[in-house]
Simulated assay, not measured.
Amino acid sequence: MAYDQSAMLKLLRPAMTRILTPLGRALVQRGIGPNAVTAIGTLGTVICALVFYPMGQLWWGSLAITIFVLFDLLDGVVARMGGGGGTTWGAFLDSTLDRLADAAIFSGLIIYFFVQRDLLMAAVALFCLVAGALVSYVKARAEGLGLTCDVGLAERPERLVVGLVAAGLSGLGVPYILPLGMWLLAAASAITVVQRVVHVHRQIGAR
């Protein structure tokens, strides 16, 4: 069900699927479908990001968000095991709610930086939010035009890993890791946008 099929996700999916299969089977037996799993994961991510991060609880917030992010894999497990909802609507819902979850995570970090009166890092986090949305939009628009756009340095899984790890380690007291992670994400997201735009332009120019 996941929309972004990055190299990282392709490597992690088999192992995570094996781990999540028992839980997926239990959900199917209780009549819970993949769309419900997607919605629960997104709701949990939004609440945790907008509650824990502004409070400065970066470690616990990142840990809780990571658990709910795993629902992005669990919904696919449920769909394959007969939970229903493995449809075009399910794929659309999954992709749309992914954008909402991402926005909540970076909005929580923006608020955190404002509370800390670190306006520079708040601006960097805002750039990460906007650039991340643009990365996804460029791909969706290109595919809507019948083109391919599976390129880029930092797709959604990579952005989530960097952001959550940096925030979590910062919550444990590792110095400078969160600003470093945000600057890295900002640069990687900007590069990815350029890579995708160039990739699409080359395809159109070849037609």
Rank of each mutant, 00 (worst) to 15 (best):
residue 137 Y to T: 02
residue 112 Y to F: 15
residue 45 T to I: 14
residue 63 L to A: 15
residue 96 T to M: 11
residue 19 I to L: 15
residue 201 H to A: 07
residue 135 V to Q: 02
residue 61 G to E: 04
residue 196 R to E: 06
residue 90 G to P: 13
residue 55 M to L: 15
residue 185 L to C: 12
residue 187 A to C: 02
residue 4 D to G: 00
residue 21 T to C: 05
residue 152 G to Q: 11
residue 171 G to Y: 09
residue 185 L to T: 04
residue 162 V to W: 12
residue 165 V to D: 03
residue 95 S to I: 01
residue 141 R to V: 08
residue 167 A to H: 12
residue 38 T to C: 13
residue 205 G to V: 00
residue 129 L to V: 03
residue 7 A to L: 14
residue 148 T to H: 13
residue 139 K to I: 11
residue 109 L to P: 14
residue 55 M to K: 15
residue 149 C to H: 03
residue 17 T to I: 01
residue 180 L to Y: 09
residue 31 G to Q: 10
residue 130 V to I: 15
residue 99 R to M: 04
residue 92 F to P: 01
residue 159 R to M: 14
residue 137 Y to H: 09
residue 136 S to N: 03
residue 206 A to K: 13
residue 17 T to E: 12
residue 11 L to K: 15
residue 188 A to W: 10
residue 110 I to Y: 03
residue 135 V to P: 05
residue 7 A to S: 12
residue 167 A to T: 08
residue 166 A to M: 07
residue 86 G to V: 02
residue 126 L to Q: 10
residue 88 T to L: 13
residue 160 L to K: 02
residue 102 D to S: 04
residue 35 N to T: 04
residue 56 G to V: 05
residue 85 G to H: 12
residue 74 L to M: 09
residue 131 A to K: 14
residue 50 L to A: 05
residue 129 L to D: 01
residue 19 I to T: 06
residue 21 T to Y: 12
residue 109 L to Y: 10
residue 42 T to M: 13
residue 64 A to M: 14
residue 191 I to G: 03
residue 29 Q to M: 06
residue 151 V to D: 04
residue 151 V to N: 06
residue 26 A to S: 13
residue 124 V to R: 05
residue 86 G to H: 09
residue 80 R to T: 03
residue 13 R to M: 01
residue 144 G to C: 07
residue 188 A to R: 05
residue 4 D to E: 08
residue 91 A to V: 09
residue 38 T to V: 14
residue 115 V to A: 14
residue 198 V to D: 03
residue 119 L to A: 06
residue 43 L to P: 07
residue 86 G to C: 05
residue 45 T to K: 04
residue 7 A to I: 13
residue 157 P to V: 11
residue 207 R to S: 10
residue 154 A to H: 04
residue 163 G to W: 02
residue 105 I to S: 01
residue 37 V to S: 06
residue 161 V to R: 01
residue 190 A to D: 00
residue 51 V to M: 12
residue 39 A to E: 00
residue 20 L to K: 11
residue 170 S to F: 07
residue 146 G to V: 01
residue 197 V to C: 13
residue 173 G to T: 05
residue 114 F to E: 02
residue 165 V to G: 06
